[in-house]
Simulated scan of single mutants.
Amino acid sequence: MNGQKILQTQNNNHWETIGTIKKVDEGIKPGVYNIYLATAPVDKNQYQGQIIYIDKENSVFYQQVKKDFIVHQLKAVDGKPVAGKDVVIAYDGEKATLTLMDILKNKRILRI
């Protein structure tokens, strides 16, 4: 996608581009993200993954957790989500806490 972000929606079996075409956020790999398949978070769960898209118009943001997508409410999360960042979101009832992941902690080191 040559570094561009395009939002599309399906309308009458045709894909329509909605919004403006913008430069992709830093940290997000090129590809097609089917965020329309996103599911709501389950209470008392923890979600670890990258924030793919923030929809300020609908007050939600999308997180990729392995191969799945989770849609979170902006008002439910303490902290400010940033697209392209790896985070851990932990729910306790209706409220959630957002914590940035330290990528270096997740890397394995091979010593010879």
Score class of each variant (00 low, 15 high):
90 A>S: 15
27 G>C: 08
30 P>M: 07
26 E>I: 11
56 K>R: 12
51 I>F: 01
9 T>A: 10
88 V>E: 10
46 Q>H: 07
94 E>L: 13
66 K>A: 14
76 A>P: 01
74 L>C: 05
3 G>I: 08
37 L>P: 01
100 L>Q: 12
76 A>Y: 09
41 P>Q: 00
2 N>E: 12
37 L>W: 06
18 I>K: 10
37 L>R: 12
110 L>E: 10
28 I>G: 02
108 R>L: 07
67 K>N: 15
96 A>Q: 05
84 G>L: 09
90 A>W: 00
81 P>A: 01
7 L>R: 14
109 I>G: 01
105 K>H: 11
101 M>T: 12
20 T>E: 11
28 I>K: 03
19 G>W: 08
82 V>M: 00
90 A>P: 01
15 W>Y: 12
103 I>E: 13
86 D>G: 02
10 Q>E: 14
64 Q>S: 13
106 N>M: 05
72 H>R: 06
102 D>T: 05
42 V>L: 06
101 M>S: 12
85 K>G: 00
75 K>P: 00
104 L>A: 10
52 I>W: 08
55 D>G: 01
31 G>M: 07
66 K>C: 04
24 V>A: 14
32 V>S: 08
65 V>A: 08
81 P>K: 01
32 V>M: 10
81 P>G: 05
77 V>T: 07
91 Y>V: 06
82 V>P: 01
49 G>R: 09
62 Y>M: 05
84 G>S: 07
44 K>C: 04
93 G>L: 05
58 N>I: 00
101 M>R: 14
20 T>F: 06
89 I>L: 02
17 T>G: 00
79 G>K: 04
77 V>M: 08
72 H>C: 04
49 G>V: 01
100 L>P: 08
94 E>C: 03
103 I>N: 12
22 K>R: 11
